[in-house]
C-alpha cells in the first residue's frame, strides 16, 4: 500500500527543482522511511540527486538534518519507519539546512 507523505524541502532546493512554494507530496510504499521518501523525491526531481544525500554513498550530507514531529531524526537509521503522523500525512518530513549562513 502506498502512502502520501508531505515533504518540506529547503528553499534552495525548491527553487532548484522548481517545485513551487510550500511542501511537496510524494507517494511512498509502506513502510515509509526517510530513505524511501528521498528516493522518490530524487526520482521525481532528478536535479535534487546529490543535494541532500551523497550521490555515491547515499549518506546524508553533513549540513543537512531531518526532522519529523519536532524531533531531529537525522541520526536514526534512514531505513527506520517514519512516525505515524508523517506516514498519514498529518505532519511533514522536514529536510532542513543547518544554521550555517554567511
Amino acid at each position: 500500500m502506498s502512502r502520501s507523505v508531505r515533504v518540506h524541502l529547503p528553499g534552495h532546493l525548491r527553487e532548484l527543482a522548481r517545485t513551487g512554494a510550500g511542501e511537496v507530496e510524494i507517494q511512498v510504499e509502506e513502510p515509509a522511511t526517510v530513505a524511501r521518501v528521498l528516493d522518490e523525491v530524487e526520482a521525481r526531481w532528478p536535479v535534487l540527486r546529490g543535494t541532500v544525500r551523497d550521490p555515491f554513498t547515499g549518506e546524508r550530507r553533513a549540513y543537512i538534518r531531518y526532522f519529523a514531529c519536532g524531533e531531529d531524526i537525522s541520526h536514526e537509521s534512514p531505513e527506520d519507519a517514519l512516525p505515524q503522523e508523517v506516514v498519514e500525512g498529518r505532519e511533514p518530513l522536514r529536510v532542513v539546512g543547518a544554521i550555517s549562513g554567511g
Binding site: H12, L13, L16, G50, T51, D54, R61, Y63, I64, A98
Partner: peptide, 8 residues
C-alpha cells in the same frame, strides 16, 4: 555550490 547542498 553550497555547503548545504553540494555541487550543481
Amino acid at each position: 555550490w553550497t555547503d548545504w547542498h553540494g555541487q550543481v
